[in-house]
Amino acid sequence: MRRGPALAGLFFLLGCTLAFAQGDAKRGEYLSKAGGCVGCHTDTRKDAEPYAGGRALKTPFGSFYGPNITPHPQAGIGRWTYNDFVRAMREGRRPDGENYFPAFPYPSFTRISDADLRDLWAYLRSLKPSARSSRPHELGILYRWRVSLYPWKWLFFDSGPFRPEPGKSAAVNRGAYLVQALGHCGECHTPRNLLGAPKKDRYLAGAKLGESTNAANLTPTKLKKYGDGELKDILTSGLYPDGDVMGETMGEVVRNTTSQLAPQDLDALIAYLRSLRPLPDEPK
């Protein structure tokens, strides 16, 4: 009779170890929201299958289409090993060794921790496989060769997980991790040079996206006009305090990501943005 609880405890411990080794899909789902994966990896049609690929990301170099990342063996990434996934996220390389274009934001995702990669992988494995084939990118003639990515990566890409800054509070470091690694906010909110690499000294100072769209300056220069409560409202509702609706690109990020964050993560994100050095807007 007394063996029951002991056995249950043993199984519980065993379960925990297994879950740790295999990653926690539930946690992975949350991390996937924090990473906004669904945005690029889902078509814009109303009935589109999530994570089955299709969205066009228009850049000066051409249109990139987010591929199918469901576990379908042919159409998706069903044949990948966990190591293939880690190599893609951390080193920006495909299973066959070729480089990804940095439209896939691996310069940010490389900062994701080992534990989070495991959970993300567990979540991706749990998705319903979709047979929808990935659409090839449509790139300008000069940019089609992946070979050119070797020097690009050599110049601009540092791999490796996020390291907390010792002098900063736990909240600021957590926020930095959410913004720099999972959230990949800098991919849009940092201006890029002619080779499409972010200008490090202008990190999160806002950037022009295409002809008319701008990503806002996220340093205190712009954000100081909002209180913490107001910023939280903006990032959970997609509305400014006067009821003004933000542009749809960020509106979608609010729906998919920032409104889904746990309250303490949203607080951390704001604490980190507040800790940034104020930078002036990009010259128009």
């Binding site: 008319s212 701008n214 933000m246 542009g247 690109t249 509106g251």
Partner: peptide, 15 residues
């Protein structure tokens, strides 16, 4: 409605 507001702001309004 929110999406309709946002879609227009995206292309026609400079915040």
């Amino acid at each position: 409605v929110g999406k309709a507001c946002g879609a227009c702001h995206e292309n026609f309004r400079q915040k």
